[in-house]
Computed example of a mutant assay.
Amino acid sequence: MGEHAVLHGCPVIACSVGLYCNVWVQRRQDREIQLQLPDLSFQQIYSPYQLTDYVGRMRLAWAHYRAAPSAKSFAPLGTVDPDHLVKCAIGEILHRLPPGNWRGFTLQVQSQIPPGAGFGSSGALAVTLTAALMQWFGLKEADCPLEPLAMSIERYQHGEPSGIDHNTSLLGSVIEGRRNAKGEFNLHTLPAIASNLLPDALRLFNTGTANESTGQVIAATRHRLTGTDNPLLASMRRNTERFGSLLRQTRPMPETFCAVIRDYQADLESLGVVPAAVAKVIRAVEKAGGAAKICGAGALSGDQAGALLVLGATNLPELAHYRQINAPLAVAGLEITRS
């Protein structure tokens, strides 16, 4: 709750989902770096210098976007390379090491998280890649903090991420983020949603990958949330605050949750990030007495908008077209193992 609005100073709440991104690193006998992405049937070998050059270009592209955010300035970051973020992560790590410390390895990535669908797939990938590479190269947290490095990698995917996605993957549970007077993003853990609400009433569905990336959607709609006393932004802030208050209650009423979810969904539709086909399904849920909202950036076109949170009325035939995500909520965050 709070997507889009968080980029304009509003609070945001996110919950971890029991879907996982896994990264393995294994030594090679040479100095080459081999990437294996079996989910995408992709494999490629690079020299370290190819990867440092690649992330160098992405750094310049991001700086240009940051100076003047727009759909046009975001375009150079919107690469279609299947290994884009992996190359960026490795390149960022290599830039923090003297070339004499570079060594070859094979890196394999497998992920259960639907890409481009509001489930934080790039945030999870950024955290997992960073942790694996820091372990591989022996980088200490004091010298190379994991969280800001993961944030820098997320920028190459989203342009201006809020920080909530990768922090939720890192920390797990239910996370609330707020900006202080200095503009710094402060995070703390909230109690999980009331247990009597989770088992029967709350469900996650995947409506399918959006036509546009998160960065493209944000770049195209951010102007609708700017300006002093923006009424849409004020509504988003108010509804996120209401949702946070409910999470702090001992026995929140499902009907009250429904009201807040409906209201924030209306905000997202006013922002223009909910395709008509998805909005039609949401109207059916509401008519049946439930509530639903997209989670994540949404989409500007097409019939798919990624993650859909549904409270009540989850057995409707209209929802049967979407994949239900049968995974626990509020799970633990990053885990590291060695062998």
Rank of each mutant, 00 (worst) to 15 (best):
R31G: 09
P99I: 08
K280I: 00
L170W: 02
D83C: 14
C15Q: 07
A327W: 06
S70T: 10
M1R: 10
P252L: 08
C144Q: 06
R27Q: 10
E184F: 09
N326R: 09
N167F: 09
S301R: 08
E318D: 13
T337F: 07
K87M: 10
L60V: 15
A61E: 05
S152I: 08
E32Y: 14
C88D: 12
R262V: 01
N186T: 08
A150P: 05
E255A: 12
C15H: 07
T214S: 00
T128E: 00
S73V: 09
V17L: 08
I294D: 00
A192P: 07
L60S: 14
P254W: 02
R66G: 10
A75N: 15
T337K: 06
A219I: 02
T256K: 13
N326M: 09
R222A: 13
A192V: 11
C15P: 07
G104R: 02
A75R: 15
A61N: 05
M253G: 04
T79W: 11
K140I: 10
L35C: 01
H223G: 15
H166D: 04
A71C: 06
G289S: 03
G104H: 03
L271Y: 12
I93Y: 05
G208H: 04
T214W: 03
A219M: 02
P115F: 04
S111F: 02
F42E: 07
A277K: 00
P11W: 14
L187G: 11
